[in-house]
Design a protein around this nucleic acid. Structure first.
Lengths: 223, 223
DNA sequence: GCACTTTTCTGAACACGTTCAGCTTTGTAG
DNA sequence: CTACAAAGCTGAACGTGTTCAGAAAAGTGC
């Protein structure tokens, strides 16, 4: 037999992870049962809870997977674009693209994700790595843009505010019943258009303070 | 025996409703079990599902209760105030006051409420009556304000946008770990200050279009 | 090879919301 | 009062995620 380079436990853990993620994608959250996963792997029901604290912690793995796919999809596109708004469009759009396969069961996942005690809620310590990816993407999108005349203080506040807006867009997406999520895409389009119109106004002293207030208000959401 | 003015079923229904709401307030969503309610009333486990389609439908009753308390708390205060921003403060504040007793278990309720298939989610048909109360409150707050120089088109878009912002504020409140929800109160305060600063700008042609775009963007959320 | 420890796994048990076939009570028509 | 129908209620059964005492397997020191 081949000498195991990892412990047996680690191998089992990865098998459970793979089976769970596959089933989440295929059947959604509710229809993915701990027992079915164990059966499929020829293991007993208790084993998943030995390797993962809870079913939600398995969703956390999926969550991270999606965020990494988001980055992988957005990064190459960003390389060829310097306009701020278009860079943001790339990041938002790529994110929605990654979410799309899960829309049929999005409500189930949201419900599991939303409790403040759940490891899944975006503000929890457990999802910090996934959130870091998103924040990184928006930071990159902003910093890599050609000098756009946006004042520095505004520019510094932007990424975190954009992350919040992204979470809200995703929330809207979950509830969007329109074909191919056209309404979400339209909301994004209108939002970007609005932002494109507003940012140049930041140079007017009258509005700069107001805009900064608005952004730091949104920032307030993250501690 | 006293002749029942209502059917026996209706009486049982109300008893279940009362016991459930009491337990929700006392113990939260998770710790309120269908079995405990049935036991307390000396009934069998299946009976709640005869009178209410699901546990979530019982939460719906609580939901409506809270909205009605919201209106009852806000209405008399509105009578003595004509300034728009202050009227809004009354509505938001009274709403947070009503929610306060549930904060300890807010995550559980949110989790139950959030699935698009749940009768509890704010966009569902079942919660239309509760949402109507909230929309009515904000409409009243806006329409009852002294002429504030806010253009009519803006004014007309305001109530629904305010409802959306109220839902988002409530979402923030759920996750607010600060003592006495100070951060939520501060967010509200800052938001109102910002709105007070922005609304007068609506008279400038340059900004009026932008502001209208923003409001109708937010309106997009409800359909 | 043996004794011992640590890691990994087992599966019965628990409490939960929900279902539903059938039982009991209430209401109604003659 | 008697049949019959409708409304109300029962409680066992199901499938769920999670727990945990203890069995089995893997690892370790001598």
């Amino acid at each position: 037999m081949p000498k195991p380079r990892e412990t047996k436990g680690e191998r089992t853990r990865q098998r459970i992870r793979a089976a769970a993620l596959h089933s989440f994608r295929e059947n959604g959250y509710d229809a993915t049962t701990i027992r079915a996963i164990a059966d499929e792997l020829g293991l007993s029901v208790g084993v998943t809870n030995y390797h993962f604290a809870s079913k939600n912690h398995l969703v956390q793995e999926l969550y991270l997977d999606v965020q990494e796919a988001h980055r992988a999809a957005a990064d190459p596109q960003l390389a060829g674009e310097t306009r701020l708004i278009e860079r943001l469009r790339i990041v938002y759009s790529a994110g929605l693209d990654q979410l799309e396969p899960y829309h049929a069961h999005a409500g189930e996942f949201l419900s599991a994700a939303v409790s403040p005690r759940s490891p899944l809620n975006p503000l929890s310590a457990e999802s910090a790595p996934a959130m870091a990816i998103t924040l990184g993407l928006f930071t990159e999108a902003v910093e890599g843009a050609a000098a756009s005349g946006v004042p520095d203080d505004i520019r510094r506040l932007l990424p975190r505010a954009l992350v919040v807006s992204y979470l809200l867009l995703a929330l809207f997406w979950v509830y969007d019943p329109s074909d191919d999520r056209r309404r979400t895409r339209r909301l994004l389009d209108r939002g970007l258009k609005l932002l494109g119109g507003v940012l140049p106004l930041a140079r007017l002293p009258l509005l700069r303070g107001t805009l900064r207030d608005l952004l730091s208000l949104v920032d307030e959401v993250r501690t």
